[in-house]
């Protein structure tokens, strides 16, 4: 029987190497060894993704490495998810994510979703071509505190503003924060349209969402 810290380290190492099948096997062993799911997630999977995130930010590895690690993360998460539901363990935060109405580009949005899940967030992915009202209504219904919006088109950035306006009209802008991103989006534009944060890439978006949650928790 492998000791608990060693097993979690093995999960983290295998994840960093993008070995999805190995991560699945090790996660199964950890579950059978009665390591609490939260500990497997935090000490194994998220610990590994944190290393990957740092290496990516430091330009030591490339995007495909991050995505291979994310696939390995999902192999472990698929086994843990039913236990989380069964035991009612909450995620560290919920994010409603989508590509705004009028735009069908979703690669960037998908990358953000993958990395947010890798950081331990629950992501409600609304897909692409999402109307403003759907973002807000889903965040309300799911009690999510962050809405993430993506677009690749200059013609659809006004849709992002419609979401922030809708939140203000409903008096929800202090409890539901917004983050925007995509090729035509800048930090200036984010401010202009009343968004709370701007992520310049997928890794940065995760840091921004963490900061938004820190602000909400501190408030």
């Amino acid at each position: 029987m492998v000791a608990r810290p060693e097993l979690l380290e093995q999960i983290s190492d295998a994840l960093q190497k993008g070995e999805d099948e190995r991560v699945g096997e090790l996660t199964r062993s950890a579950i059978e060894g009665e390591i609490p799911p939260r500990e497997i997630l935090d000490g194994g999977l998220i610990a590994g993704m944190n290393v990957i995130g740092k290496q990516f930010r430091d330009h030591q590895i490339f995007l495909p490495d991050v995505l291979l690690a994310a696939r390995a993360m999902y192999a472990g998460m698929d086994l843990l998810r039913p236990l989380f539901i069964e035991e009612g363990i909450p995620s560290i935060g919920k994010v409603v994510l989508g590509t705004v109405q009028g735009d069908l580009h979703d690669i960037g949005k998908n990358l953000v979703g993958i990395m947010l899940r890798g950081a331990g967030f629950e992501v409600i992915d609304l897909g692409k071509d999402v109307p403003p009202r759907t973002f807000v209504e889903t965040a309300e219904a799911e009690q999510a505190n962050v809405i993430g919006m993506s677009t690749l088109l200059t013609t659809t950035t006004p849709v992002m503003e419609q979401v922030t306006d809708l939140l203000s009209q409903k008096g929800l802008n202090s409890s539901i924060r917004t983050i925007v991103g995509g090729a035509p989006v800048t930090s200036d534009l984010a401010r202009e349209i009343g968004a709370d944060s701007y992520g310049y890439d997928a890794a940065n978006a995760v840091d921004c969402v963490k900061a938004l949650y820190d602000e909400l928790n501190a408030g």
Partner: peptide, 11 residues
């Protein structure tokens, strides 16, 4: 992407 083959999908 739906099959979690993110790196290949992105490439």
């Amino acid at each position: 992407f739906a099959q979690n083959e993110f790196a290949l999908g992105s490439m």
